[in-house]
Amino acid sequence: MALGDVGAAGIAIAAALTVLGTGLATAWAEKVIGAASVGAIAEKPELFGRVLPLVVIPETIVVFGLVIAFLLLGKIT
């Protein structure tokens, strides 16, 4: 399927929006979890190991965004 310049631009913008949206979502989610985790660690420092993965869990969202963005960019060429 041949894409015009306009179509290609549309896809590029869509890819950018995907990364933007997922990035914001990750940041917001990590903010909430991070604040709660620091509170928990202050009470019980040995919880660090349990809490660290919880904090980075939302990072998966932005990874999904990255994958989708590359799938979209693949359509341009």
Binding site: E59, T60, V62, V63, F64, L66, V67
Partner: peptide, 12 residues
């Protein structure tokens, strides 16, 4: 499926 794609962070 999400777990598998999650490894894309290596590339990211």
């Amino acid at each position: 499926l999400a777990n598998v794609i999650s490894y894309a962070r290596l590339a990211g």
